[in-house]
Amino acid sequence: MNQDISNVFFSMKDIVKQYQMGEEVSTVLNNVNLSIQEGEYLSVLGPSGSGKSTLMNIIGCLDLPTSGEYILHGQRVNDLGEKELSRIRSREIGFIFQNSQMLPLLDAQKNVELPLIYAGVRPKERRERAQEMLRHVGLADRMHHYPNQLSGGQQQRVAIARALVTRPTLLLADEPTGALDQKMGRQIMELFQELSDNGHTIIMITHDLNIAKHARRVVHIIDGELSEGEAVNP
């Protein structure tokens, strides 16, 4: 039993997220129950507006649920303050957002270094890790390009490098291949597979079944309701 709990990465119980829209209350997430084991590779599949990004924000400790319990590494996230939440984000979680998201005044390398800056990593180590990560996503020759000198796909790869550079235990990716062509998309999927094989926990959000299939476990979300899909890729 104890063994069991320590292997649970996080568990969500009856998570509800509502927004007050004037008089009306709109329920974006409705009683979501989800448990993830360490090292799991999960994809969340659902149509646009179904609540995928909202769920990701809650998992990533960027947002708090209206009600329900979210326990990450045995800690109730609901009770944590801003500072502790940012510590978790810094240490545990790597985000890849849906939209392009580089800081315009920093070059690719500095953008990738950013999470390490806030984590207080030494400059030399920071540079080396950022460069290694950029090479990993195929941007060895674009280290010192600024966002306006990079294509959308390249920017997305910078974002992936930035999410991975802290060696997060949980990688949260919102449509990571949305802006990429098939070949690049495949490369990213291979990268994710490799990370998963190395024990990273990955949650990938997508509306594309073909992408979702790369994960070992798929859950469906429709109108804020989560349901377990059939296992693929056993």
């Binding site: 801003e82 940012s86 984000r89 810094s90 240490r91 985000f95 800081l103 806030y118 802290t166």
Partner: peptide, 16 residues
């Protein structure tokens, strides 16, 4: 705002 949000998302503390 976007810059601030992004920095926070990747682990910047409010104090930082």
């Amino acid at each position: 705002t976007v810059e601030i949000g992004l920095k926070k998302a990747i682990g910047a503390e409010p104090g930082q």
